[in-house]
């Protein structure tokens, strides 16, 4: 296999990894603060993508500028979901939370299908024809922008959590809810904030996905969401560094491994494509990690 092809696939993997990381960090944040697993997180990504699509279609401004708007919009939707759906049933049992968020999946998917049909939507990035040459390889500019965007988001998120009073209060709530209340922290407000922030990160993932040339449809969220769950479990529940490492590993592995296997079986004279196995690889890695280290790579309780 050509080295430049491998590098190109590596960048493709990094880019896919970025989407998983943005989703996984939001999920981790919501789980950390509220102890709720939001199974409908992929649908927030879908809504984020549609938000970006409509803002772009109606205004025509540079799609990269739209990301912030889509994030704010989904942040507000996140507040409503937390207040109207999760808060009334908090503390009534895990099963209720699970069924509620599973129900939200179908609610949002069908609502999107009803409002915007099940047809695929896409937008055209102004840079879709631009690629950057590094040595012998050519990389689409959009992928590079997305990788840079994700890095910036992660740095901003980390600074917010570590340096600001609000971020510290959210971390305190996730470590010990009762003690946080004793510090004078309004813990229900932290729930709301974590849901808003998690939804905004999902919107960032969804709009970046759309801008980079992927299509949006009402069901686009399921696969990335399942991958994000795999990322969280591989990285360790609640661990942000874990989510970053696992997200990148997964993104790269699922893109590089099929090619490796293909060239490996090629040695025996078998010509067969393994790209359709992409989604299987995530779960194969997941199973291996769970067998070797059930708490995940960076796994332990807290934060």
């Amino acid at each position: 296999m050509d080295l430049s092809v491998l590098l190109q696939i590596l960048v493709w993997g990094l880019y896919a990894g970025c989407i998983y990381i943005l989703l996984a960090i939001g999920l981790n944040l919501i789980f950390g603060v509220m102890k709720v697993v939001n199974f409908a997180h992929g649908e927030l990504l879908m809504l984020g993508a549609y938000a970006a699509f409509w803002i772009y279609t109606l205004s025509g401004i540079n799609p990269y500028l739209i990301i912030a708007l889509a994030m704010i919009l989904l942040g507000i939707i996140g507040v409503f979901i937390e207040r109207l759906c999760f808060r009334p049933i908090m503390g009534t049992g895990k099963l209720n939370e699970i069924f509620l968020s599973l129900g939200l999946i179908y609610l949002f998917q069908n609502l999107a299908a009803l409002l915007w049909t099940t047809g695929s939507r896409s937008i055209h990035s102004p840079y879709s024809d631009v690629s950057v040459s590094i040595g012998s390889i050519r990389l689409p500019l959009d992928y590079i922008i997305i990788i840079v965007f994700t890095i910036l988001f992660l740095i901003a998120f980390q600074l917010f959590m570590k340096r600001t009073t609000l971020g510290r209060a959210m971390r305190a709530t996730s470590q010990n809810r009762e003690a946080a209340a004793l510090m004078g922290i309004h813990v229900e407000r932290m729930d709301m904030l974590s849901f808003a922030l998690g939804s905004a990160l999902a919107a960032a993932a969804g709009s970046l996905w759309l801008i980079s040339g992927q299509i949006a449809n009402p069901y686009m969220g399921s696969i990335p969401a399942i991958k994000a769950f795999a990322v969280i479990i591989i990285g360790g529940l609640g661990s942000i560094p874990g989510a970053i490492v696992a997200g990148l590993t997964l993104g790269i592995a699922e893109n590089v491994l099929p090619l490796f296997i293909q060239s490996f079986v090629g040695l025996f004279g078998v010509s067969m494509s393994f790209t359709a196995w992409k989604d299987t690889i995530a779960f194969f890695i997941l199973i291996i990690v769970l067998v070797i280290r059930p708490t995940g790579i960076f796994g332990e309780k807290g934060e």
């Binding site: 209060a169 305190a172 010990n176 009762e178 946080a180 922290i185």
Partner: peptide, 22 residues
């Protein structure tokens, strides 16, 4: 509180800063 309930994964200083949240 009984059982101290400090924030285990934060530094001593961060625990104290949270104490001054009001």
């Amino acid at each position: 509180p009984e059982g101290r309930e400090i924030f285990p994964k934060m530094s001593v200083l961060e625990n104290l800063i949270l104490g001054a949240y009001v």
